[in-house]
Amino acid sequence: MNNPQVETVTTGADKAKLSVSGLLVLGAVAVFYMLGTQDLWVRVLALLVGLAAAVGLFFSAEPGRQLIGFAREATREVKKVVWPTRKEAMQMTGYVFAFVVVMALFLWLTDKTLEWVLYDLVLGWRG
């Protein structure tokens, strides 16, 4: 990473924006239920407008801008990933399946061996 980590201080304005954003979400849900006698499309529209306002206000605060920056950096890093070819992916999938089958057989044999030792040899039960 060539970006030094910078500690940002949340200002009072950012705290107020986050608080109002949270209140807008609660208000949007409250309005949705208060408009219970209205058509569904009116209720949903009111909810979406309130949520859009809350999201817009959140992204105008510093934590929202940091979230956008993080998403951009994550996208940039994903583009740097060297993905395996189809042949390599199929080979690795085959190895995983083969390992699972071998482990299943090993655990089954271990279980049956312990069952035989405990029930037949130690306890003398014939199953």
Rank of each mutant, 00 (worst) to 15 (best):
A16E: 10
V9M: 07
K15G: 05
V25M: 15
L18A: 08
G36D: 14
P84R: 09
L47Q: 03
A104E: 04
V100F: 10
A52Y: 11
V29C: 07
T85F: 06
V55T: 07
L123D: 10
A89I: 00
V122I: 15
L114M: 13
S60M: 15
Q38D: 12
K87Y: 07
F58R: 02
L48V: 14
A89E: 14
L24V: 02
G22L: 07
R76N: 12
T93A: 14
F59Q: 03
V100P: 01
D120S: 08
V102Q: 01
E62G: 00
A16G: 00
K17D: 05
E73T: 10
M103G: 00
L35M: 14
L121E: 12
F70T: 10
G56A: 12
A61E: 01
Q91A: 09
K112C: 00
T8S: 02
L114C: 10
D120C: 01
A46E: 07
S19P: 00
W83T: 14
E77D: 11
A74Y: 05
A104P: 02
A54L: 04
A13S: 03
T8I: 03
R43D: 11
Q91H: 07
S19Y: 13
V20E: 05
T37D: 15
Y119T: 03
L48M: 10
G12E: 15
A28M: 04
W116R: 14
G27L: 10
P63A: 05
W125C: 01
E77V: 10
T110A: 15
A98W: 04
L114R: 09
E115G: 06
V20W: 04
R126S: 13
L118H: 07
V78S: 09
W83E: 10
V20K: 08
V82S: 15
S19H: 13
G12S: 12
E77K: 12
E88R: 15
L67V: 08
L107T: 13
A28C: 07
Y95Q: 14
A104L: 13
A28S: 12
T11W: 02
L118M: 08
R43M: 09
A61D: 02
R86F: 12
L24S: 01
V25H: 05
P63I: 03
F99H: 00
L109F: 12
A16K: 14
T37C: 00
V9D: 00
I68C: 00
L47V: 06
R76S: 13
R126T: 15
V101Q: 02
Y119I: 08
